[in-house]
């Protein structure tokens, strides 16, 4: 169990993704079964890896699973794979893997470049703040999963819309849910993820303002804070627009969701990677609220 590495499940998901792409051309039941089997094996390995990380966290009296940037990214990927396996088993015809696996592989790939050391925000000495910290990281993780869902659902909507407008002359073999369902799921993904991210950001700010990070000061002019703030404002804008514009077309919603959520995802992952590699930058990243899993200068580096 202790021998499970990131490469184990990364390789499984890569093979499952390749099989899902193959299914587009040759939709056979056997290919589906092998693909789901390999993805499930990867999911088990992924779970074992995270449990190992949680054990390590407990030794250091840190919250399980979300103790480092790497853990956080891998938990996000784990949630997405779990979502994929659940939906794929419910509806065999759905071509969900083609959309989700690139994201999963991107997240796991980026985790190679993230630090696996505990964050200072999760300082064990501050036991009184642990509840807040857990709320902070959990809401960010689940909110981010919602953002990922928003991206995938928007992509699926746009592809299905294009296929239907082109009278099925594209995307042969790709089985997607109806526009009506995709639109509804997309709406809910934004409605759920934006409040969660807001809670995550809010608690992050409270944690930082309560001043426990060894004398570091929070500056609102900090570029990281500004970038994260813009991303969050983009999502809030989308959230408000969706609530106030009930007659928006599904395509408009899909495009705006894709842009807002895509920007947020790239920003968060990008800032975390930069924080892990650039000591100067990581200092800023560590005080960002969206990237609350940012790591201290001393421990940054690829895992």
């Amino acid at each position: 169990m202790a021998d499970v590495t990131i490469f184990c499940f990364f390789a499984s998901y890569t093979v499952a993704f390749a099989l899902d792409v193959l299914r587009l051309k040759r939709p056979k039941r056997s290919t589906w079964m092998v693909s789901v089997g390999i993805a499930a094996a990867g999911f088990v390995a992924h779970t074992l890896f995270l449990l190992n990380a949680a054990d390590k966290g407990r030794e250091e009296l840190l919250p399980p699973l979300l103790s480092s940037s790497q853990d956080w990214t891998l938990v996000l990927a784990w949630l997405v794979v779990g979502f994929h396996l659940f939906l794929t088993c419910c509806d065999r015809a759905l071509s969900l893997g083609v959309f989700l696996f690139p994201l999963v592989l991107g997240l796991i790939g980026s985790s190679y470049f993230l630090a696996d050391e505990p964050s200072q925000l999760l300082n064990a000495a501050e036991s009184a703040r642990r509840g807040w910290t857990m709320l902070h990281v959990s809401s960010l993780a689940v909110g981010s999963a919602g953002v990922l869902a928003g991206i995938v659902l928007s992509l699926m909507y746009l592809l299905q819309h294009r296929r239907l407008r082109q009278k099925g002359r594209s995307a042969t073999g790709l089985k997607l849910p109806s526009l009506e369902r995709l639109s509804r799921m997309n709406w809910w993904s934004v409605m759920v993820s934006v409040p969660l991210l807001t809670v995550g950001m809010g608690t992050g700010l409270v944690l930082l303002l309560s001043g426990s990070t060894e004398g570091r000061e929070l500056s609102l002019g900090d570029p990281v804070v500004i970038i994260n703030g813009i991303s969050w404002l983009g999502l809030i804008g989308l959230f408000g627009w969706m609530l106030l514009t009930p007659r928006a077309t599904g395509k408009q919603v899909a495009w705006r969701t894709l842009l807002a959520c895509g920007f947020l995802l790239v920003t968060v992952v990008g800032l975390n990677v930069l924080a892990s590699h650039s000591p100067g930058f990581s200092e800023h990243a560590s005080v960002s609220s969206l990237g609350a899993n940012g790591d201290p200068v001393e421990t940054g580096g690829p895992s």
Partner: peptide
């Protein structure tokens, strides 16, 4: 089967 169900869920 191919198109109406691609647009509407129900």
């Amino acid at each position: 089967g191919e198109f109406a169900r691609g647009i509407f869920d129900r």
